[in-house]
Amino acid sequence: MPRITVKVDGISYEEDVEPRMLLVHFLRDRLGKTGTPIGCDTSNCGSCTVLMDGKSVKSCSVLAVQADESEIVTIEGLSSDGNWHPMQRAFHEEHALQCGYCTPGMILAAIDLLKDDPDPSDDAIRQGLEGNLCRCTGYCNIVRAVRRGAGEMGVTTR
């Protein structure tokens, strides 16, 4: 069984995994990082989105062995010392979540999209989130939240 070393939300793990183990199952079942949920089996819904070496990936479509030597950030690693990431605050402020199941993936996809386009248009936000499905919100408030989050992140980085 291959041994992998992965840093998840700032903590290093060394684990033996079956080659077929999906990254999302590794996170959830092995490490107990249940903040990242699973919504489908065809990489369509994006609920399981995490950042892998800084880029958004769908953790249901990555094998844990492929994540060897990488650094993963999940929704649980975004806030520190109780301080939420601006995007988490923005989702709360704009009521951009209802059941919350898609929210971790949506927030991480939003953060990723701002890396390329720190001040996206509404259309760019919608296109950038095309791989993350939400069944509750109709997306209007998610778009608003990403815009707000972008604004706040712009302020903090400037």
């Binding site: 959830r28 990082k33 249940t34 903040g35 990242t36 709360h92 979540l97 919350g100």
Partner: peptide, 21 residues
């Protein structure tokens, strides 16, 4: 009012049934 429910949902401190071990 902003929702009380959000705090755990935006931080991943959720309790979905599949989380239970």
């Amino acid at each position: 009012r902003r929702r009380k429910e959000d705090a755990r949902l935006v931080t991943g401190r959720t309790q979905w049934t599949d989380n239970i071990q």
